[in-house]
Amino acid sequence: MALPNDSAPKFLQYAHPEMIVSTEWVAEHLNDPGLVVAESDEDVLLYETGHIPGAVKLDWHTELNDPVTRDYVEGPGFARLMSEKGISRDTTLVLYGDRNNWWAAYALWVCSLFGHPDVRLMDGGRAKWIAEGRPLDTVTPERPRTDYPVVDRDDKHFRAFKEQVLDHLGQPMIDVRSPGEYTGELLHMPDYPQEGALRGGHIPGAQSVPWARAAAEDATFRTRAELEAIYQGEAGLEPADDVVVYCRIGERSSHTWFVLHHLLGFPHVRNYDGSWTEWGNSVRVPIRRGDSP
């Protein structure tokens, strides 16, 4: 049974207010049956230092990725993971994490590939919860194991592969990396040299809109009007556009995918998770350097 939506006025402006809840809402509903809160961070130990009481941990690298192939887990692996975390198919799953919900948005996108019916982000993530002086707990909750069904991963609607991006050239694309990565000056994200590529630049036609522009100082999402000014005003996207977003491994662009698809209501947005670590290492794909798309 799904929990009620958060009817905060800011959220009601968004195209899909049911996809987002506030820290207040989480505090109020924390003990409701049918809710599981999950923390997804870049740092694998951050959850252990203290998390929202009762929240489970969901690790992007060791749990959502296939350990061998560069891909996500398949249906049986996802079902096993959800069952171990105590999440049922009808659970309202609320995700939050560090760094403006960067990794939480990535986890939400992966859950969406499996069509989990009710998955939401906690606006402002871990930073806002802590800034508000809300309680943290180091106890790992023991949730009863569930029987999550095996659901095939659907890569058609929200995911783009390299071949599809080649076919998409000339249509709207958003590169969410830092300006230095976009122009080709940097072969990796600032401070992340281990995730480099052999060639620098961007996919021809892709516009540069760094992902963190969608977040305010307190790590919450900007208002609908502010987001429209960035993506529809500055970048000139139309809601009916078929849009591909990418970054370096698909995590930062999951955040932008969430903004375009759920907050602004664009129906056709796909995340190219191969992103620059695939494109910038591929033979004979077109690359553009410099400031212009």
Binding site: D43, V44, L45, L46, E48, T49, D98
Partner: peptide, 9 residues
């Protein structure tokens, strides 16, 4: 920083 426990470890 304390918010980077893995790196500190």
């Amino acid at each position: 920083p304390p918010e980077a426990p893995t790196t500190r470890g």
